[in-house]
Amino acid sequence: MSRHLTSKAGLGRFSLFSFLCLVFLILAVSQPGISIAQVDTFEFETQEQQKRFRALSDELRCPMCQNTSLSGSTGGVAEDLRREVHRMIMEGMSDEQIEQFMYERYGDFIFYKPRLKPETILLWFGPLLFFLIGAIVLVGIWRKAKRMDAEPVVVTGESKNRLDALIAEHGRSKAAAENPNE
């Protein structure tokens, strides 16, 4: 009985591995696509400023349309916020200052990458936590299966009698199958 179980656990281990591979594959190919930027006629003095503008408006989230960045949204607020980002860049404010400006008005929601603080710890480390729980369970199953493999199977009493009878039966039918003429 126990033999039977271990071989099943071995099979389970293999399919679990394939399953994990599949999950990683899906995650790898389903990266959020690059959003199509809205066309604004903002003017910049340097390439650096333009690069910063693009980076910021890709990183900041439109508060109205939720799953779009500022750069990808046609929403009214997004338009206003892009204008503000442009103004602040031209006024010489740093990226940190601009992010702080947005945070003071729209909170963590405005960032695709929320700040690390007590309220966002679960958001940041929740996936890791679930991964660890999964890993612990996986290792537990694996160790148990290995232990069962190592243990000799001891059969006694009524079970032993039945097992002996089955083996004898099997031996007879096998012999009969190999030598059908006898």
């Binding site: 109205m64 009214g76 206003d80 916020l81 503000e84 008005r105």
Partner: peptide, 13 residues
């Protein structure tokens, strides 16, 4: 009109 005060209020619509 420009929605600038709205930004200070954190208005999104």
């Amino acid at each position: 009109e420009p929605g600038r005060f709205g930004i200070d209020l954190g208005v999104y619509g």
